[in-house]
């Protein structure tokens, strides 16, 4: 069983030199279908790179932001120290908090420097005190912590970053979905184009089909000759397009160095194997599309 399928696959890819000769060597439709398969695969490589990159981005943002949060204490200067103390005590006894540390004046000055310049007299200004919280992997219960803080340190405001983390991660997730949808659309377009090309080829070769039927060729034989040709064409075109697409991605400048919002729109590590699936997928799409087109056409002929 498996052996028979393997044999069929080999015939499909290498061709049946006898049977394939019955279909006349094709003209420009062949070049058009080759070109479209190549162009679509090139685009598919980019859609795939985008999906994988945004997936990575979403994971990274999710992971980094999930593990830290900030506690901001706004209180009159005379209560600042006491409330900071109280908040720290609460944090130390909160399960899920690994470490809590008030930022030093220098650190706060550094954070504000981009807005107010380096000479800001932080000590003399009523700016809030920030406490950095490092969470354990399990995280803490934000609602419970807020409740306890409101009792012990009324000036403390907890910012667990979820507020702005969620839409970012959602955006990255949506972008990733968009990428996969693009790949599906590309596959659909390839199927449509191959179907059109196959229909054109079948119509142009009506005489060939009539002659083959007259001398006793079965539908499977006739369809096979066309199906093999289009499958091989899609495989060849898609291979060229994929290689070019992967080359283009490999040559893109590394965005990480520049500060990384794009996180390198490309493939990393094992992800380089993903685009290699495009040519066989294109061939499979072409196989199914041509087979359906050929069977449909043949059924209508005497």
């Amino acid at each position: 069983m498996v052996l028979r399928w393997l044999k069929r696959l080999v015939v499909l890819l290498l061709g049946d030199t006898q049977a394939d000769r019955v279909v006349p060597p094709a003209g420009y439709t062949a070049r058009l279908s080759l070109f479209s398969a190549a162009a679509m695969s090139f685009l598919a490589v980019f859609a795939m790179a985008m999906s994988l990159a945004t997936g990575r981005l979403a994971d990274r943002w999710g992971a980094e932001l999930a593990r830290t949060s900030t506690l901001r204490i706004s209180a009159p200067p005379e209560q600042m120290a006491a409330q900071t103390e109280a908040a720290l005590r609460v944090l130390e006894t909160t399960p899920g908090v690994k470490r809590a540390r008030p930022l030093s004046d220098e650190e706060q000055r550094d954070l504000l420097a981009p807005w107010f310049g380096p000479d800001l007299p932080v000590e003399s200004l009523p700016i809030p005190r920030l406490i950095e919280i490092i969470e354990t992997d399990d995280g803490y219960d934000a609602a419970g912590l807020r409740l306890r803080l409101s009792a012990e340190a009324p000036g403390a405001v907890l910012d667990d970053h979820t507020r702005w983390r969620r839409p970012l991660i959602a955006a990255a997730g949506a972008l990733r979905t968009l990428g996969w949808v693009s790949i599906l659309l590309i596959a659909g377009t390839v199927a449509a184009m191959i179907t059109l090309a196959a229909n054109a080829a079948l119509a142009a070769n009506a005489q060939v089909i009539a002659v083959l039927r007259l001398v006793g060729a079965r539908d499977a034989y006739i369809a096979g000759a066309f199906v093999r040709r289009f499958t091989q064409r899609a495989l060849a075109g898609a291979s060229v397009g994929t290689v070019l697409g992967m080359g283009a991605i490999a040559m893109m400048p590394r965005a990480d160095v520049a500060g990384g919002f794009l996180t390198g729109l490309g493939f990393q590590g094992l992800h380089w194997f993903w685009p290699l699936l495009i040519p066989p997928a294109a061939a499979a799409v072409a196989y199914v599309a041509t087979r359906a087109a050929a069977r449909r056409t043949l059924r209508e002929l005497p």
Partner: peptide, 28 residues
């Protein structure tokens, strides 16, 4: 359709306007 195809192998037909595969030599 397959039965018809197999049956055609037992009936030789010469058409009035004989059609061939024009890209293949006569012997083929």
């Amino acid at each position: 359709r397959d039965d018809i195809a197999l049956m055609r192998r037992r009936i030789g037909v010469v058409h009035q306007d004989c059609q061939f595969l024009d890209h293949m030599p006569v012997a083929d």
